[in-house]
């Protein structure tokens, strides 16, 4: 498992380093950067949803908090980009701490509703405040280097992925988190404090989301309440993670790659039919929940495992 993991990571890193050398077309570079961004958003959403069972329907708020924090610090305070985006992550983490203490005690749908409502509240706040530019949004100092953003976005998401993999699949922390998902009462008898662990996971999910938001803001150079704090950010991350397969790290990454590619091509080549995008997205998610409850990766991986089991039994 370990060696395989390092091998596949090295392949990914290598591919990643080569991409800008091969892809000269800025459009494609942009498409790939965006796909990577969605991988980051889907995976960060899934660590809470898939590993603790809490569906956060306000994930986009962390993205927006990161974007706005970065924009405000760069525009009004003259902070350098890297420091500002890390501050964006910190603010998102702080938001998770404040939002998590009351809401993570709620179970099931109540948590989903509470996070959704909080995200709407934050969006409204961005609409009325002066510092955020209200509905006009904010313009960041333009830095038109697609290659730079490709590396920054890709590097960040890669680090997120590796850290998550270590935390949730290697370190005992992951086992504790899964125990709480499987049975909260049972986990308490094992000395685990569910509230504390869930808040940790919530923060672990929020901080990188904020950083990604910060990178997005500087990359796109313009943010407004609906593009960074709207429902769509959350919805797409949710759809990607569910489509790919909850509770794994690879599933949401695959889901994000497929759906984000689909989205880009749809908007680029079928822009006359933009209305259809959300309809198709909604249909897709409904179908995948009904026919592939474990998601694409879960279904495929399950088949492979079954085949392996059958194979090993025959050998005996």
């Amino acid at each position: 498992m370990g060696r395989k993991f390092y091998a596949s990571i090295s392949v990914v890193v290598l591919l990643f380093l080569v991409v800008p050398l091969v892809v000269h077309d800025t459009f494609y570079l942009r498409v790939i950067t965006e796909a990577i961004m969605w991988i980051g958003l889907a995976v960060t959403w899934d660590v809470l949803a898939g590993y603790t069972g809490y569906l956060n329907f306000g994930h986009g708020a962390f993205f927006g908090i990161g974007a706005y924090t970065t924009a405000i610090l760069m525009v009004h305070k003259g902070w350098p980009f890297f420091a500002a985006s890390i501050a964006g992550g910190a603010m998102a983490g702080l938001g998770a701490l404040i939002a998590g203490i009351p809401t993570l005690r709620l179970r099931g749908a109540y948590f989903a509703i509470a996070t959704w409502a909080l995200a709407r509240a934050i969006q409204q706040l961005a609409l009325i405040l002066d510092i955020t530019g209200g509905p006009d949004g904010m313009r960041l100092p333009p830095f038109l280097q697609p290659g730079f953003f490709f590396y920054v976005m890709g590097g960040t998401v890669l680090i997120i992925f590796i850290v998550f993999w270590y935390l949730f699949e290697v370190h005992p922390f992951g086992l504790k988190v899964k125990a709480i998902r499987e049975n909260e009462d049972g986990a308490m008898a094992m000395g685990l404090n569910p509230a504390r662990i869930k808040i940790k996971v919530f923060i672990i999910s929020a901080v990188p989301t904020g950083i990604i938001g910060g990178i997005y803001a500087y990359w796109i150079t313009y943010i407004d309440p609906s593009s960074t704090l709207g429902d769509l950010v959350t919805d797409q991350a949710v759809v990607m993670a569910v489509f790919g397969g909850l509770g794994t790290l690879i599933g949401p990454a695959i889901g994000a790659l497929i759906i984000s590619t689909f989205k880009t091509y749809f908007w680029a080549y079928l822009s006359d039919y933009q209305v259809l995008y959300l309809i198709i997205l909604g249909g897709l998610i409904a179908l995948s929940v009904v026919f592939m409850p474990d998601g694409l990766w879960g279904t495929v991986y399950g088949k492979i495992q079954n085949a392996r089991l059958a194979g090993s039994k025959e050998k005996r």
């Binding site: 005992p172 049975n183 009462d185 986990a187 008898a189 685990l192």
Partner: peptide
């Protein structure tokens, strides 16, 4: 617990490891 509370999705070893940790 009278009504047992296993961590169903985890292996037997992992179940015990959660406690051992």
């Amino acid at each position: 617990f009278q009504i047992v509370k296993p961590f169903a999705g985890l292996s037997v070893l992992e179940n015990v490891m959660v406690a051992v940790l």
